[in-house]
Every structure is written in structure tokens, then in C-alpha cells.
């Protein structure tokens, strides 16, 4: 049963990653892409969590923690960059 649940979770996460990827490519503006990237990061955190569970390797959780930290810093960094100038249009 756990095997089935893990398979279903991987499937749902992959579909969600695909949706986020479509949004990342389509935009239409830079903040939209940042939101999509941030979602992809938290999806990857969940992915790593399930991988650690599936393979009985809790050491991977450290990777998930660091990824969650850097994803937040990326989002804030992008937001500051957009706010302080940089290129405004997306084209």
C-alpha cells in the first residue's frame, strides 16, 4: 500500500512540476516566472522528502532544508531586483 501511495505521490508531483514548467515558459511577465520557480522549488523539496522516505535515507532531508532556504532567498532576491530597477519589460 505504501508503495502505491509513493508511486501516486511521485505522479502527482510530476504533473504539478509540468504545470509549473508551462507557466515558467509562458510567463507572461517576470514575476509570474518567479512564482512558478518558487513553486517548483517547494515541489522539489517535497520530491526529496518522498525520495528520502522511499529509500530510507534521512540524510537527503538536509538537501531539502537547504533547498527551501535558497529558494526563499532567490524569490526575495528577484523581487528586490525587480523593485530596484533592472529591466522592466519581459521582451
Amino acid at each position: 500500500m505504501l508503495e502505491g501511495a509513493i508511486f501516486l505521490s511521485y505522479l502527482l508531483l510530476s504533473l504539478a512540476l509540468l504545470c509549473a514548467l508551462v507557466r515558467l515558459v509562458r510567463g507572461p511577465t517576470l514575476p509570474d516566472r518567479v512564482v512558478a520557480l518558487e513553486l517548483m522549488a517547494s515541489l522539489t523539496v517535497a520530491f526529496i522528502g518522498i525520495y528520502a522516505l522511499n529509500n530510507d535515507r534521512p540524510a537527503f532531508l538536509d538537501v531539502a532544508m537547504v533547498l527551501a532556504l535558497t529558494a526563499f532567498l532567490t524569490a526575495v532576491g528577484f523581487a528586490r531586483y525587480l523593485e530596484k530597477g533592472g529591466h522592466r519589460g519581459d521582451q
Binding site: 502527482l12 508531483l13 504539478a16 512540476l17 509540468l18 504545470c19 508551462v22 507557466r23 513553486l39 517547494s42
Partner: peptide, 10 residues
Amino acid sequence: FMFLAGIGVL
């Protein structure tokens, strides 16, 4: 729920 977040963002 994360899948719904993906659909939502799309």
C-alpha cells in the same frame, strides 16, 4: 494539494 497548486498556477 501541491498538484492543485500546480493547476492553480497554470
